[in-house]
């Protein structure tokens, strides 16, 4: 399991959470040349435009696209989810990874306090193995001022109500995104990360078998 370190926030908690789940994971500061990647985690806290600049500088953009195309599961967390999309209002004109079509927009002032910070609930709207065993109404921990609006609503796996319903979990093929912090969401968060590991591990076995 590769955790991408591109200089946006602290990755220690994500790493510790995955290690607690007994996943073999490493933090990479440059694109690893490994044929045996089970899954990729793209965390991140901070500004969209800084994040994209760092991903470009680090040579991550092409690497991520390549791996995703090869079928390796990718999980974007918080800002990492937003980066999966085409563009963001934050950092006008900056293109995202564009793996998922759609825009990232700021909460309107009408929602009240921004950022949306604290524990809020998941409304599960479609089936995904990422949310396997997660109950309707489960609380997870959010800290963000922007949210993604997928062009294709079918990729929304869960929504959350903060004055408006926004996409809090997205899943499309082998691309997954969580707007909240699973590594800070106690048992519920760890269960979701475990699901991602469970998605990734059988996958790598299949890929190795295919390649041999």
């Amino acid at each position: 399991m590769a955790i991408i370190d591109y200089g946006m926030g602290n990755l220690r908690s994500v790493e510790k959470a995955l290690q607690t789940l007994e996943a073999d994971c490493s933090i990479f500061t440059e694109p690893p040349d490994s044929a045996y990647l089970a899954g990729i985690v793209l965390p991140g806290v901070g500004a969209f435009s800084d994040a994209m600049r760092n991903l470009h500088r680090g040579g991550w953009v092409e690497w991520i696209r390549e791996k995703v195309e090869a079928g390796i599961p990718l999980l974007g967390i918080c800002l990492g989810l937003q980066l999966l999309f085409s563009r963001s209002e934050e950092g006008a004109g900056v293109t995202g990874l564009d793996l998922l079509k759609g825009d990232v927009v700021r909460f309107p002032p009408s929602v009240g306090i921004i950022p949306h910070m604290g524990w809020n609930q998941l409304k599960i709207v479609s089936d995904t193995p990422l949310l396997s065993g997660i109950d309707e109404g489960e609380f997870v921990y959010f800290v963000h001022s922007y949210y993604a609006v997928p062009a294709d609503p079918a990729i929304i796996a869960a929504t959350t109500d903060y004055g408006i319903d926004f996409a809090s979990v997205v899943a499309d093929r082998n691309i997954y995104g969580l707007q909240f912090h699973p590594e800070k969401s106690q048992t519920a968060g760890l269960n979701i990360l475990r699901n991602f590991i469970n998605i990734s591990i059988p996958d790598i076995h299949a890929r190795i078998v295919r390649n041999n």
Binding site: K16, T20, V143, E183, K184, S185
Partner: peptide, 11 residues
């Protein structure tokens, strides 16, 4: 901070 982050999965 380090010891807590290693063992506690909450903010």
């Amino acid at each position: 901070a380090r010891r807590t982050a290693d063992q506690v999965f909450m903010p």
